[in-house]
Design a protein around this nucleic acid. Structure first.
Lengths: 247, 247
DNA sequence: CCAAAAGTGTTCGTACTACACCCATGG
DNA sequence: CCATGGGTGTAGTACGAACACTTTTGG
């Protein structure tokens, strides 16, 4: 039997002490500032002990009658107003030594179900309630977070990169119409400069046929005007769960 | 603002009724019978109400001082003896209407953190404790499970297929040495016959260079004897998080 | 000798890479 | 007219799909 099972304490006494839980949802909310080429994550400042005054991920405890996803959307709604977004469950962390501010019952464990979200930076409007701090942090400048949440963030970042490669998340977070350069900027900002050549990225995506050229041109300063494209979800459907369409 | 946010009830009364939770871990444990070409999942029969006598995924409530992963391994240890296995967290389900047998406190919600496991079928030995039913079910013959767990199973099956394509899980569940046909059988059983031609599968994997030919030949009935190979984790390391090495 | 299983090789088409090059606009 | 960004084309290479073929065993 492998060493992995060393914890096995063949004790099967009928009643063992179960853990009692508070369940919270913590969101890793990303956005992308393509003009400054930065990936941003939304942080809030803690208003209570423990970790008072320290930055952390926006989170909440789950209420009665509320699904986990409900709770995740609720935090989002409390912190930012957005037009489009993508949200999905990320991972569940349940460190037994990590208790959260529930002073009345010190033996209650805190379980964190984390959600991953990607929102449109330009259209996102932070809701400052006057008291609490809230800010977009560039991913490479994130400080030490409360509750060891940097691990969650790291997890979320991996998910962000993967999602971009495998799924059409990008279009959930781009405007209705966009130039191919907008799309390319989003990809390079998240995946780094060396994921693909622009012209190759271009022709690969166009060949797949789910980007409709609207015919409308838009001029951004100097240079030839660019076509505006629209994502065609129907045309994309057959490519669902085909691997790696976007790299 | 999108319709997605219709739940937003601008009520921010300071104290809302938080949900209290029992947290359980439920395992989706797969194994592969390559001789009969079947993917199997481990089910146990419920011994208590609700859903008494109905099949379900092996699960447990999380105890004090125990991590989620601890709990997942504990269930495994209680149900089967295995040599090698792969285990990772799958998804967390928290339906607020789905209560679990905690009759003393009807308002306590049940939260299910599910884990995905893959074990070696040949070396797995089910632990029958005389009372409870336990069995490997072929994936296409799984009955209606308690607590709507078929959703979890479906989720686990998707993960199984993806894992096989992206990561070297297969080697966690094959013997130390194996023939290329053993490996191929594992893949076809899980992914279906039409994922790749044997000879192409062969040459692709060998070219990648993380399979060491031990030189030892093994003869299985008629036909030319096959070489036994060994997975070289070091040689594989540089291919980590390179996409789609196995398809 | 033949069937069965292991292993090798070949052909063909497609897809990615890395560029070079043309186009349209603002200053 | 030229710098700037948008867009097209091409040569070389690599790789996967399909399938023919050789090798080595047991009966």
């Amino acid at each position: 039997m492998s060493g992995r099972f060393s914890k096995k304490t063949a004790d099967s006494s009928p009643q063992r002490v179960l853990a009692a839980f508070k369940v919270g949802v913590d969101n890793v909310i990303f956005s992308v500032d393509t003009t400054l080429n930065r990936v941003l994550v939304l942080l809030v400042m803690r208003q209570q002990e423990p970790y008072l005054g320290q930055w952390c991920l926006p989170g909440t405890l789950v209420r009665q009658g509320e699904t986990l996803e409900d709770a995740a959307y609720r935090i989002l709604d409390e912190k930012i107003r957005v037009k489009n977004l993508y949200l999905e469950q990320l991972y569940t962390f349940g460190n037994p030594r990590q208790e959260r501010g529930v002073p009345a019952s010190p033996s209650v464990r805190y379980l964190s179900v984390s959600y991953f979200a990607l929102v449109q930076f330009e259209a996102a409007e932070l809701i400052a309630d006057g008291v609490s701090g809230i800010a977009w942090y560039p991913l490479d400048q994130v400080p030490l977070l409360a509750f060891d949440q940097n691990r969650i963030l790291q997890y979320g970042h991996r998910r962000l990169c993967n999602k971009l490669e495998y799924s059409p998340v990008a279009f959930d977070v781009l405007p209705e119409v966009f130039t191919l350069n907008d799309l390319y900027q989003l990809y390079t900002t998240i995946l780094g400069e060396n994921f693909s050549d622009y012209s190759n990225f271009r022709s690969r995506l166009l060949k797949l046929g789910f980007l409709q050229d609207t015919g409308v041109k838009v001029s951004r300063g100097a240079g030839r005007p660019a076509s505006l494209y629209r994502f065609d979800a129907n045309a994309f459907a057959p490519l669902k769960d085909k691997p790696l369409v976007f790299i």
